[in-house]
Amino acid sequence: MSLHPELIPRVTVDCATYPSLREKGVLITGGGSGIGASLVEHFCGQGARVGFIDLSQDYAHETARRVAAATGNQPHYEAADLRDIRALRSAIRSLSERIGPVRILINNAGNDDRMPIEDVTPEYWDERFQTNLRHQFFAAQAVIGEMTRAGGGSIINMGSISWMRGASGLIFYTTAKSAVMGLTKSLARELGERNIRVNSIAPGWVLTERQVERAKRIYQGKFSEYLEVQCLKEHLLPPDIARMALWLGADDSRLVTAQMFIVDGGVV
């Protein structure tokens, strides 16, 4: 099977404009590639002051260069391993100095690598939770003070529909992603009095470059088979997730909190 051009992740500029996002400080984790890079581009396109963190210095640099060229708005970045909470906190402090107080946090970073259940060790389990869940709490913890002082904000945690479907081969990922909803609910309850909203996005199978390459390598039939279970017969792309994040970050959703928004084309 050869991929059609519409399957290739693309830049989407034809979307709503949210005046309330202009000049707001936006922090995105895992912003160097995939959904994260699209988030960086979309928020820069709204005139926000964007900072992002990525594990890869090379990916981060290339994304920052490309986004600045496409939008005329230069994002700032820090390379850091989010499993290292001290490094995460340091990166957030550095970016806050450049973008101003963080008013919108998008906890996007994660990794859905697979492993047979028999091969999962306690050490690997713990590392997967560090990769997919723990940093979301500590990133939120690191910005709530400046959000409060600035008058409020929006935290968006990235979940997944994989746990709702009981996806196999990545039980450590589905378990962590199911916990994102509990984290979101509790943060929303605790931070509501500070005018901080907390929501989550649960994407379906989004055709990032990484996901496309893996599917092509392992099983190309997945492209057509996945569409069969979607109500809408079009593959999800990173901009589809970024557009939901724009709305959740903007004042248009000012009384929306403690919710999970499924963006999957109608799978679950």
Rank of each mutant, 00 (worst) to 15 (best):
S2H: 01
H4K: 14
P5S: 07
I8V: 15
V11E: 13
V13A: 13
V13W: 01
D14K: 15
P19T: 03
S20W: 07
L27T: 08
A37T: 01
F43C: 02
G45V: 01
F52Q: 03
A70H: 09
T71W: 03
T71R: 06
T71D: 05
N73M: 07
P75L: 05
Y77A: 05
A80H: 08
R86K: 13
A87D: 04
L88Q: 09
L88W: 07
R89K: 14
S94I: 02
L95M: 08
S96D: 11
S96H: 06
R103T: 08
D112M: 13
D119C: 08
V120W: 06
V120I: 15
V120Q: 07
Y124I: 09
D126F: 06
F129P: 01
Q130V: 02
H135Q: 10
A140P: 01
V143R: 10
M147R: 11
I155A: 13
I156L: 09
N157L: 14
I161K: 11
W163N: 14
M164F: 05
M164I: 09
R165Y: 06
S168I: 11
S168W: 03
F172N: 10
T175G: 12
A176R: 10
R189T: 14
L191S: 09
P203R: 04
W205D: 03
V206E: 12
V206A: 07
A215I: 11
I218P: 00
Y219H: 12
G221C: 04
F223Q: 00
Y226S: 03
Y226V: 07
P238M: 01
D240I: 00
A242C: 02
R243E: 15
A245F: 09
G249I: 06
A250C: 02
A250H: 01
D252N: 05
M260G: 00
M260V: 14
D264Q: 07
V267S: 04
V267E: 05
V268T: 15
